[in-house]
Amino acid sequence: MDFSWDDLRLFLDVARLGGLSAATKTTGLSAATLGRRITTLERQLGTPLFVRSQTGYRLTEAGEELLARADDVEIGMRSLQRWREGALGDRTVRLSAGLGTSAFLSRHIARLWTTDDAFGLELVTANQKIDIGRRNADLGIRNQRPSEPYLAGRLIGAVAYALYSGRSLVDGAKAGLFVGMAGEANQTQSARWLQAHHGDRIGVRGNDATSVRELVAAGAGLSVFPCFVGDSDPRLIRVAAPIQELQTDQWLVSHHDERHTPAVRTVADRVAGLMREHNALFAGQQPLAVP
């Protein structure tokens, strides 16, 4: 039986992320399309790979076995890809980060990459931790020191969180209501804090950080954002001091085998330098504009 690498790659995303919804962000496909592709793969194999439920997708015994074998295939495909890139005299450095951090890096792309560089740069935006060990990324910005023995971490700063409202206290914000997170986005530390402290006052929810920020800017209520996100948006205003229990460190993570390669080292040094220059913004210490 012939296997499609594309189908195996989709299977890996769904298996690692635990469901179709999360995998839509990494694959760029709709949940319906992903579901059809997984069902087709199961029919080809003649066995179910997942147990479906409202809480997500759980691997069956056959799915666990395929995951182990597909992991090996992925390593080989990554190796072939790197060989091809090297043969073409080109190299792409993949840098993973969350939505807000990726947006910040995008605004400062000139500091991270130029047309004179002998490599390309790819931003991998995901709320879930991207597996650097499997070479799904070369570098990652995380909120914890890496615990895996094959990963190296560099502390590059701290991230503060605070409550924000739109600049005009209208509608929900005026009534003292909050905007919460829904779905998988509700599992972040800041979303859980908001639910624990103000869950009875949440009037509107969004299932991703961008929609929540738009809702707050429009006056639907208050919500928690990283200070580098809230303080950089002229439509928002911080209404309280940073929340100490939400502050996290920020680590730049790489694989031990890759961190000294010229392209990866160059991007890592540029990211670390950029973050150091903006430490005050990320730590919530930047002077705030008068509303």
Rank of each mutant, 00 (worst) to 15 (best):
I38G: 02
G199V: 00
L274G: 09
F282R: 01
R270Y: 08
G46M: 05
A118H: 13
D249Y: 00
G18E: 07
A196Q: 13
G172Q: 06
T114D: 12
L252N: 09
P287Y: 12
D208T: 01
L80T: 06
H278I: 10
V216S: 11
F225H: 15
I141A: 02
S254R: 10
G166D: 08
T115P: 03
T125K: 07
Q244D: 14
P226K: 00
I38T: 05
D249M: 03
Q286D: 11
S190A: 10
F3P: 04
G98H: 04
Q285R: 15
R52T: 05
G98L: 04
F50R: 02
V271T: 00
H256N: 15
I156K: 04
A103N: 05
R107Y: 05
I156S: 02
S96A: 15
V159A: 15
E148I: 04
D200I: 08
L246I: 00
V224A: 08
L29M: 14
T26K: 02
V253H: 04
I109G: 13
L215R: 03
G19T: 11
G89R: 10
G98T: 01
A118K: 14
T40V: 11
T27Q: 05
V212I: 15
S168W: 05
L8A: 05
V159L: 11
L252V: 15
G28C: 07
T188R: 03
V159W: 01
D116P: 00
A158P: 00
G133M: 10
K129Y: 06
T60I: 08
A191W: 07
Q247I: 09
E42K: 08
K174V: 01
Q144C: 00
T60D: 06
T125N: 02
E61R: 14
L274M: 07
T115R: 11
L169Y: 04
S30D: 10
L88E: 15
G18H: 06
A32F: 10
A32Q: 11
T266R: 11
A32K: 10
S79I: 00
L29N: 01
K174E: 12
L29A: 03
A173S: 13
I243K: 10
G19A: 10
L177H: 03
G203H: 02
T125P: 11
L163N: 01
T101Q: 06
Y164A: 03
Q286S: 13
Y164K: 02
H256T: 14
S53I: 05
E61S: 11
G206K: 12
L151P: 13
T40F: 04
V204T: 14
D200G: 01
A118I: 08
A280W: 02
A137W: 05
H260I: 04
F225M: 14
H278F: 08
S106K: 14
D233S: 04
T92I: 12
A23G: 07
P291T: 06
D72S: 13
G199M: 06
Q195A: 13
R259V: 09
L12N: 04
V73P: 03
G120K: 13
Q244S: 14
S106G: 09
L59K: 08
R134L: 12
